[in-house]
Design a protein around this nucleic acid. Sequence first.
DNA 1: CAAGCAATAGTAACGATTACGATTTATATT
DNA 2: AATATAAATCGTAATCGTTACTATTGCTTG
Lengths: 137, 137
Amino acid sequence: MDVLTAMDLLKKNGFKYTDKRRDLLQLFSDEKRYLSAKEVQDSLKENYPGLSFDTIYRNLSTFSELDILEETELEGEKKFRFTCPTKEHHHHLICLKCGKTKEINACPMENITTDLSDFQVTGHKFEIYGVCQVCVS
Amino acid sequence: MDVLTAMDLLKKNGFKYTDKRRDLLQLFSDEKRYLSAKEVQDSLKENYPGLSFDTIYRNLSTFSELDILEETELEGEKKFRFTCPTKEHHHHLICLKCGKTKEINACPMENITTDLSDFQVTGHKFEIYGVCQVCVS
DNA sequence: CAAGCAATAGTAACGATTACGATTTATATT
DNA sequence: AATATAAATCGTAATCGTTACTATTGCTTG
């Protein structure tokens, strides 16, 4: 995923081109880690001092639905990151301090021996948490 | 985990015996599934119409710290269930409608081939979500 | 360049959780 | 049994993250 592809995706789905969206996408493209809405606001407030919550949350939600962003919830807060280049289904090792991630190649669902047939399975979550080398020091 | 063991654990840690705590624990003992604070309030309001948020959240938090309850967060809401009889580390298949669980015997951390050494790993989460047979019909 | 509609700002509302001062209650001590 | 004291609770307010609303702005297309 990159900014241009993302803007094309927006256009293709009837969304409009705005500077805020470009800059928002550029931010995720630069950072490549999980960001909260608050962090987004902080990062963009230099150029857009009055950036509205509505704008931030609505766009993050839109981007997530279009698979431009990957979404998770850490410690009661929604976090978003630019969709990984790895197209296949994957999981993450996540730094709880800065949101930096590392991809985990295996999916635990492949090795389940427990019988799941008495539930209609709709999804799963596997995340490893920690502190990255930069944040630990 | 059962109510008596839990009350003993409380005593042993300097907490007091109250009817509310007993009934709260009895609720979890009866239900054996993930409950939200709101569900707890609803279930107990017959006997304790004015049960305070403070009381509910503080006790849930205390119980969780003493490992009387297992805690997770589903769809932005904290959920608690009586600690499973299985002492060993385990994971859950969870019904998103009623909180009913089924234990998963394997832990994905055992089969990780990805190198984790550039992070100081502090924890992980593996949950399978779905709808149980009762809720699906 | 004007019409139409999406996007946004500013702000209010919301739901879950936490926090607070005043009061009540469990427990240990006398 | 009466009392002291410290914990537990109530009633309510504050907080935090998120969503929703209305008026206004600004993309896009003909």
